[in-house]
Design a protein around this nucleic acid. Sequence first.
DNA 1: CTGAAAGCGCTAACAA
DNA 2: TTGTTAGCGCTTTCAG
Lengths: 355, 355
Amino acid sequence: MTRVRISDVAAAAGVSVTTVSLVMNDVESRIPEQTRQRVRDAAREVGYTPSSVARGLRTQKTRTVGLISDRIATTPFAGRMLAGAQDAARESGHLVFLVDTDGDAGIERDAISALTAQQVDAMIYASMWHRVIDPPAGLPAGTVLLDCRPATGGFRSVVPDDRAGGAAAVRELVAAGHRRIAYLDTDDAPIASSLRHEGYLEALAEAGISAEPALHVTGDTSAQGGRAAAEKLLDLPEDQRPTAIFCFNDRMAIGVYTAASHRGLEIPRDLSVIGYDDQQLVAAEQDPPLTTIALPHYAMGRWAMEVALGVRAEGDEDAAHLMECPVVRRDSVGPPPAQVAKPNRRRALHTERLP
Amino acid sequence: MTRVRISDVAAAAGVSVTTVSLVMNDVESRIPEQTRQRVRDAAREVGYTPSSVARGLRTQKTRTVGLISDRIATTPFAGRMLAGAQDAARESGHLVFLVDTDGDAGIERDAISALTAQQVDAMIYASMWHRVIDPPAGLPAGTVLLDCRPATGGFRSVVPDDRAGGAAAVRELVAAGHRRIAYLDTDDAPIASSLRHEGYLEALAEAGISAEPALHVTGDTSAQGGRAAAEKLLDLPEDQRPTAIFCFNDRMAIGVYTAASHRGLEIPRDLSVIGYDDQQLVAAEQDPPLTTIALPHYAMGRWAMEVALGVRAEGDEDAAHLMECPVVRRDSVGPPPAQVAKPNRRRALHTERLP
DNA sequence: CTGAAAGCGCTAACAA
DNA sequence: TTGTTAGCGCTTTCAG
């Protein structure tokens, strides 16, 4: 079972290999339709599949892309980055090599050389969460960084706009009438944490609310951590207790749900909660479904691939591209409880709306 | 910036290309260490990276594998299959092309030809959940099916042993002392559903418990579906109500948690619950953490890759390989409540244990 | 409009 | 022990 070659097609069609090549690649329209048809028929008859390997050697273009990532494929979290990248690659006729390094520098190094040896046309280096990194040595120029940015520049990159996302979360709460808004932060201090905090402060200032240190608590990024941090907030005296909590992520928000339910607090009646990430199977499945800020994973993946492949022109090599994080409105945000807000605020609002 | 070729290394080292090739591929040990070293140094100096494309053309072996899947990369669920497959591929020096078809037959067809054109050494066709499928036309012989099995045979495949998993879940409950065990099933009727049901019946029979039709309820596979189905179970008269519920999956088990908590039932004191899937970020993060049956995704992915690459010999082309689903013990299973079981069972047990 | 032929960079049979 | 050389299957220039 030896491979069917282009010369077999040529022989079957009674033409030269040049003609077959020209027809198969839809080039040289001056070849008459009759010949083209004959060639195509012959190709089908003998079961010809062109060899990308031979073509790659000849053209020095493989139509393949390398995507190196630390765990992205196995994190429930970020799979949609892959989907975005894949879709963009497919649309322009490229196949993607995926290498998950699991954070191992040795594997990473090997992956870079293997991919270079394969002569991939482009390369993407992805992180499973927004970070600032030192790009590994040997990363080819032109590589696009996905969900991470280089500490020292030199590569194009795309990351979520966490600052704007934090601000959007707080504005959402302010719009619902809240004034005592807590930020339930992580103490792991990833870049996203400080960015979202900045956005929080910005939106607070914008609304003329002064930031209360007691309303900025931290915990680890799990549901347990969120619960523990929430306890601190709910332990505050009634008149200092937040009426809304903006959480660093959805998992911590679940912890807030637990803490609230243990105190008989109902969401959103007694407490509004907003998360971050819009994590599949977490945010939407809560009771009530969690309002949150979505990480635009699909769009980032697509952007990275388009830039890497040159489908999308991107001038500045050093500035990170910021991708908007949209608000996903579900049912965990409502107006602040009446007894905590000004007593007749709600009625007043209601009256205003009447014609 | 033209590519550094093997002939450049040969020139730099003052040897022939043959020698370089022999050294780079660690073959022909009869070349003296001194020459080898000289060649290696020269290669490093001129910055030589062998071209896998040229090598692939010459040897007709590309050291690449194609992995086609419907959504596996974007499902939080099954990412670990990828990790297992990747790890096995890397260990034997292969790179993997990942194509996510999103269930689209056209994309699937294109992927198969593109991968064939790339002359991949092996191919894996993966499903995101255990199914019986009609393998797409054109799938090369030798392709290994992952988490799905062919309706008509013809391909090797690996799937979880759902029947044994269902039985294991029930045995776990029986061992804790339960006799009234419900199966909270899905009405979507995937193959896994009936297999787990068989296991459930088998383990019940084994324990001499007769299957109670009222204890087999169904719902959709979401938390909402689980909750609705659980209500039916909890609405049963006290003496018919199950003391333990085996759920089709972890998400439905969450619904059981919700239903129980709304009735003031505490898990596992008043009700034991066991799930299936051991889904990341759902099973472990519940309160209490959910005991469940794990889907051996990593092991299946690894098995598929090893068989596809011939690292692991596998004789029978037609029988699906069944992978064990281990019990993951956490805190949602306990003994049945005392007032439902024989009144002094617990004390009796306790007494027995005293010296 | 079509064909002959020269490589792309490598491996491996054969020669020296 | 090392070198020469013929392809692997394709694209593409140049001739006809």
